[in-house]
Structure formats: C-alpha cells, structure tokens
Design a protein around this nucleic acid. Sequence first.
DNA 1: CTGAAAGCGCTAACAA
DNA 2: TTGTTAGCGCTTTCAG
Lengths: 337, 337
Amino acid sequence: MSERTQRPVTSYDVAKHAGVSQSAVSRAYTAGGKVSDATRKKILQAAEELGYRPSFVARSLITRRSNQIGIVVPGLVNPFYAELLDRLTQVCKATGYQVLLFSTFRDDDTDPVLEEVLRHRVEALFLVSASLSSRFAQECARSGLPVVLLNRKNEAQSVSSVTSDNVAGGEKIADFLLAGGHQRMAFMAGRESSSTSRDRELGFTERLKALGAGEPLRIQGNYTLPEAMTATRTLLDSPVPPDALFCANDIMAIGALNVVAGERGMTPGKDISIVGFDNIAMAAWPLFGLTTYEQPVEEMVAAAMEILQDNLAHAQTPVSKRILGGRLLVRTSARLP
Amino acid sequence: MSERTQRPVTSYDVAKHAGVSQSAVSRAYTAGGKVSDATRKKILQAAEELGYRPSFVARSLITRRSNQIGIVVPGLVNPFYAELLDRLTQVCKATGYQVLLFSTFRDDDTDPVLEEVLRHRVEALFLVSASLSSRFAQECARSGLPVVLLNRKNEAQSVSSVTSDNVAGGEKIADFLLAGGHQRMAFMAGRESSSTSRDRELGFTERLKALGAGEPLRIQGNYTLPEAMTATRTLLDSPVPPDALFCANDIMAIGALNVVAGERGMTPGKDISIVGFDNIAMAAWPLFGLTTYEQPVEEMVAAAMEILQDNLAHAQTPVSKRILGGRLLVRTSARLP
DNA sequence: CTGAAAGCGCTAACAA
DNA sequence: TTGTTAGCGCTTTCAG
C-alpha cells in the first residue's frame, strides 16, 4: 500500500468550493432534497469541477441500507446458471440494486461464503442451486436477512424458494417416452445432494412404475458435461443399451448427444431418444434439437424478486415456496409418440 | 420500509456483553490485533451468542478500502464472457476481493454504469469487452482508480488493457485456410465498434492480400449466434457461396456450424470450412469440433490481475497494454492443408 | 494488553 | 430553504 489511498473528494470539499454547507451538498444529491435551484446548480457545478461522487459506503452506514443484493452461484460452467445469473442481474439492476457476486465453485459447504455475505450487509440474498444448512438459514432469519433459494428447495421450513415443477416434469417425460414406445429407459442423475435431480428422478421413475413400465437404468452424470459423456459411453457399451435416456439437466443431455451423434454416429430421435431438463438456449440449436422440459427462467426470477420485495417491505412475511409450471418442449432428439 | 431496518448487533453490543471495551472487540477481529487470548475468547464467545458480524461497510469507511472490485460485462449470452467472468471471480476471490457485478446488456454507452461504480468506491475495475470513453478514462485516472480493459483495447493512452494477439490470430487463420486450398473466403464480422473484431479482420484480410489471395467476402454477424445463423444462410444462398468462413468469434462460428450441418446437412471440414476465434469450451465438443484460435483466458485474467495489483501497490505504475499469444487449435470443422 | 476518544463521509433531525 | 449538530459502526492513535 502506498499513496494509492489518496483521499477522494468529499461533500465538505464541494461545500467549501461552492460556498454552502455540507448538508446542502448532501441534499443536492438526494431525491426529494429541499434545495433551491440556484444552490443546487452551484453545488453540481462545484462537484463537477472537483470530480465529486457521493460515497455509497458512507451513505450505507448512516441509512443502514447497502443497496446491494448478494447472489451466490456455483460457477458458470453450466449455461443454465449463466442464464439465471444474467436474468437476476438484470432484474436487480431494474430494481435499483447492485449485485455482489459470490461463486462457490462447488456445491457443498457454502457456509464460509455466507458468513462473508452477512458482513457485507447485503439487503437480501439469492442462492442459486446452493444448499443452505439449516443452521445458516436460522442465522439469516435472526438477522432479518431475506433469502430466497432459486432452483433448489430446502427442507427447512424457514426459507423461501422458487423452483419449477420438477416432479411433474419428470412425469411428463415418462409419459412422453412411454408413448413413444420406448422399452429400456435410463435416467442420468445430477448431484445426489441436489433436490432438483431427486425430484425429477422421482417423478420419472414413479410414473414409469405407475404405468407398468420397468425400473429404468440409473447412472450418475453429476450435472456436468464431461461426466455425462463418460456415463453415456458406459451406457452405450453395456450389453443391452437403453433406447431412451432422460438426463436430469440439459448440459448432461447435450453431453449425451455429443457422444451419441458426434462420437458414435447414431441419430438421436431414431437410434436412441434423449431428453433433457432446463431448456437452456442451446437446446434449440439445430444440431441439438433437444427435447426438454422448460424451466421458466424469467418467471422464476420474477417470482424470486417478488418474494424478496415482500420480505423487504414487511418484516414478517410468511415463507413462500413457489413452484412454477414448466412445459415439455418436443424437438427432435427423442422419438415422437 | 418497516421494521425490516432492524439494527444489527454492533461491536458495542458485544463489548457490553463481554464486559470489555468496544475497541477490544475490534481488535479481536483484526489480523494482528493485540488482544490476550483470554479476552479474545470472551469476545468471540459473546459475539457468537449475539450473532455478531463486523460490518464491512463501517470498516470500509474508516479504512477507505471497500475490498470490492467492480467487473463490467456485457451480459453473459456469449459463453466467452461467462468463462471470463467465472475466472475473474475466482481470481478476485483468491486475492481476497469481493466482486461487484455490473452488466451493461449492450456495448455502447457504458458511462452511466461507470458513474455508479465510482460511487461504490470499488478499489479497481475490470472492463470486459466494454468500450471506455476517454472522458471516463480520465475520470478514473483522476480519482486514482485502476482500470483494466479485458479483451478490448482502447485508443486512449491512459488505460491498461489485456488482449490476445488478434491480428496474429487472423493471420494464422488466413495461412491455414490458404494452405487448405480454399478459393473463396468469407469473414464474418463482430460488432463494428469492437477492436477485437477489427483486429482479427485486419490480420486475416491483410494476410490474404499479402499472399495474393482475393479479397474475402464480408458479412456482419454482430457477435451473436442468431445473427450469425442468418448471415450464414445468406452466404450459403448466394450465387457463389464461400468455401471457407472465418467468424470473428466462436459463438458465431457455432451458429454457422448449426446452419451448415444442422440445417443444410452439409459436412463442415468437407463441404465448407468454418473457423472461429476464442476457443470456448463447447468448441471442443465432438458435434462441433471447431477449429479456432485460442484466447488464453487464464493467462489473460492472471495478467489483468497482475496489472491491477501493480497499480494498487504503486500509485503511478505506467499503463500497460499486454497482448498475449494464442494458438491455432485445429479440429475438424475446417479442411486440413 | 486495554480503554478512551477522535473521526471516516455521509444523512437526518432540528433550528434558524 | 439553509446551516448546525449528532451520530451510523467501525479503526486507530494515544494514554494508562
């Protein structure tokens, strides 16, 4: 450290330069500030000359509002998270909040980052696909910090969440694949700890069972493309390969597609059916044509922000666990009924 | 607003609870704080009981260090930006900084967001693929805010930047395509305002000219996948379609690939050659096998952080414009020499 | 090692 | 409308 810590120009500097009091300067910069046009002009002029910019940190301290929302994402390699973050950022901006970004780069053990978050006095917290220990959920509740989980639910009663209807999605896909006349189904799971993967699997397998179909194969793809590719190879090389594969998210399905079509020269939708979950942008690309179950990202983000606003407005808003409806998007990667 | 603005527990509360002075509490939470183990233990205990978390905003005010780095990205629809942001975030975290994220969602007119940034008293600023008016560059210099442009350079002498060797990349690709015996080249441009696109084009066309090849076709793809798809269709439908297409970035090349292979049933690398620029993760996927020029993201981010650290350490570090070497990655989307 | 006191840059009563 | 004053929650001398 050296002279880098040069003192920025403050409202006092501006006040002196403009020949007014410091509070006048403050008023000139606040919304309904009572200042005459004359003095405001003088002040703004002086500020311009000095290069003054009101400090949000000082303001935060006195108003007790940081104007920052924390967003925790597990890295951005999964495009679905990138899309979610993009949308969240946009909405935060529109609502006048600044985004403090935290990447965990792994799913488990998010607590250290949450500790950080609290010290930053963010006004609210979006947790994308992150698990939240109930201990920490309590901490947040205690300090009155509104938290909403996105794309992940939580056993804890105390924390709000927004997810899409994962179970229903799994069921719809079971119906669709069954109607397509598939005989040997397989399910590729995401992370075992993930509620979304569990729910999608639950809907899928229960539905198959209910309709008298056999138990699907099961393989682990861990929500990543490379692992999904490996898993797909294993599946294809097995004595009796599946004729339909439901992947718990799109990026795994894309991985499967790459193995099936890119490596093995098979035709998805003919030689084997592949279905994903999310409807990320690339699912619609011609080379993929991925049949998938859409998660309504915009609505999810809107709902999340709504919950937050409610919490911000009235301290004791009841916890809300919103489940938004998605829909099956039939493209070409799976055989039609 | 209502009771939501409940007062968080402060160091005074902890001090009282622990029977020590407030400054003792402060010391207990700072690195080389002179406190006896006994009192520290007492304090930490009390803090735990009350759920105390030192406020970074108060600390920032007094230390004049916000510990936050601003990152400006133009949205995340282009996976290259997502990769860059991911890496930046990781490095910031490793260096002990928090990330304040700003998305512009459009390339031009980034100044309003920059105004915001300054008020937040971030300690430094990463500008990803954003243009920076020289007026604003001066403002930053004046307030001593270190700024580094990533993947974009700037005429202004006063601002540091890190890019890869875009011109050389364009040249290498010209060489490669020429060696492959292609006759009718085309170049798909990114945004006209973008220095990266201009440089890649420059290297490409100049090199072609130097080697006696004809002027390539030129079409606008604007750095987005949908526009690239449209442009590709136009190209393919022209009387004399090109036999080689160099796209100024990967996502456009992927778009071209989707039209060529997905829509038209042509075989990239045989019927037509397609080359991209960036080497985003998906370029390596079997279904794409995109020949491209790699931008060394890790090195670029590392270099950017290095420049920042230098600037932070010594106020008047000379501006540095670093250009990192990439390399041509030959895969299957373009015919081999 | 510990406490008292000053003050970071701003907002928000309160007077004038 | 304006200026004066008291903090916001912390770090940091300075005495003890």
